[in-house]
């Protein structure tokens, strides 16, 4: 077992974990924050994307033990976050989700786009989204939603 001290959504947590436990499984099974989803467990689909020290990472291929000392924000931890509130509303209005499974990871990735790349155009948004798979929507609504939030934030 490895000792782990970590901050998740503002809460300090100390735990003993098996070294092989992924950050995603720690978040889901140990902390019971199940909004973070597993879609492939090999770092391709992006459903497990969370913020680690403010940057998006794949929690399925990051061991919990390696995340020691970090600050994690999961989809449940954005209630007071303005860009996320804008994105949630825009996703709702642009029909950017169907089954909802990719949505939490998609939103975390989208938040990174609208905060890191305020000038992104549609091509850039599509390029940046290439690391998050959605099987339902054809991405059209997602791209529209992100562009609309970028536009809002430029005003």
């Amino acid at each position: 077992m490895t000792e782990l001290s970590i901050n998740i959504n503002g809460e300090h947590i100390k735990a003993d974990v098996e070294p092989r436990l992924s950050l995603a499984d720690f978040i889901r099974d140990r902390q019971r924050l199940t909004g973070t989803h597993l879609g492939c467990e090999h770092g391709v689909c992006g459903a497990c994307t969370v913020l680690m020290n403010g940057e998006p990472v794949r929690s399925c291929i990051t061991f919990a033990a390696v995340a020691d000392g970090s600050e994690i924000t999961t989809i449940e931890g954005f209630d007071q976050d303005e860009p996320m509130a804008q994105l949630r509303q825009a996703f709702h209005e642009n029909h950017a989700l169907q089954c909802g499974y990719c949505t939490p990871g998609m939103l975390v990735a989208a938040r990174d786009i609208v905060t890191r790349l305020p000038d992104a155009d549609e091509d850039r948004v599509r390029l940046e989204l290439a690391g998050n798979l959605c099987r339902c929507t054809g991405y059209v609504g997602i791209v529209k939603a992100i562009l609309s939030v970028l536009e809002q934030r430029r005003i």
Binding site: L33, G35, T74, E76, R88, G100, Y101, T103
Partner: peptide, 21 residues
Amino acid sequence: VLRKEDKRFLDGHGRYVADIV
């Protein structure tokens, strides 16, 4: 009509089988 089911998914509160213990 905007979807009634969106909110739970947007907030991370969807409940899939793997979320149930």
